[in-house]
Nucleic acid binder design. Structure first.
Length: 204
DNA sequence: GGATCGATCGGCT
DNA sequence: GCCGATCGATCCG
């Protein structure tokens, strides 16, 4: 099964974020295949988005966001956690989708060992949790997720209909009013693996 | 259930 | 020097 093509990511970031729900994130590791269905994402769009790492312009840390679409942007936060984004839109414009939660599908045993918990819901419900479960760290920053030999990529999954999609403000964003209220978080309604609080609001 | 706090460090204003 | 797109432990009610 080939990964989703670069064209999928070279689109409007809100559209990519919404369409990523239901797709399958795959990590090849130690000859095994770890995977999970994407159930929660957030969009970060341009330097004018005051919640984005690109708000201060291009730096060595956020360089991947300015690169070609379909590549990973992996950063470390609070000194100990990692978060995975997938770069979107045209090269040169800093935008990406943060992968916030998965429903684990394959490789649960390996995930349990890495996470140190047994409950499947707690394996990948949260941006740092899923990175720990799949051993995603800064070595994968800028990795091409559309390459034929990628060890991290997105496979096609069953589409999620609009009536199962909810939106809301992004988690953990503070400060600027627009940045913290704009509904750029997308998640599958009532899914147990979604992290954080669950406001309910329909897509359109 | 909710609020609060510490961990831990690279990048930045 | 300050602080963060988080998590888990702990305390309170």
């Amino acid at each position: 099964m080939p990964p989703l093509p670069r064209d999928f990511f070279a689109r409007d970031t809100l559209q990519v974020a919404r369409d990523l729900l239901g797709q399958v994130l795959v990590r090849l590791l130690d000859g095994e295949r770890l995977s999970g269905r994407i159930v929660e994402v957030e969009a970060y769009i341009g330097e004018d988005d005051l919640a984005s790492h690109a708000r201060f312009g291009r730096t060595s840390r956020n360089e991947a966001m300015y690169g070609p679409p379909g590549h990973a942007y992996v950063y470390q936060i609070y000194g100990l956690h990692h978060c995975l984004n997938i770069v979107t839109e045209a090269e040169g414009f800093p935008a990406a989708v943060l992968i916030r939660a998965l429903e684990p599908l394959e490789g649960l045993e390996q995930m349990r060992q890495r996470r140190g918990v047994a409950d499947p819901v707690l394996l990948t419900a949260g941006p740092a949790r899923l990175c720990q479960a799949m051993e995603i760290d800064r070595r994968l920053d800028k990795a091409d997720m559309c390459a034929p030999d990628a060890v991290l990529f997105v496979d096609a999954g069953a589409p999620v209909p609009d009536d199962q999609v909810a939106t809301g403000p992004r988690v953990g964003v503070q400060g600027d009013l627009r940045a913290r209220t704009v509904p750029w978080r997308f998640y599958i309604r009532d899914h147990p693996c979604v992290s954080g609080r669950r406001t309910t609001r329909d897509v359109r």
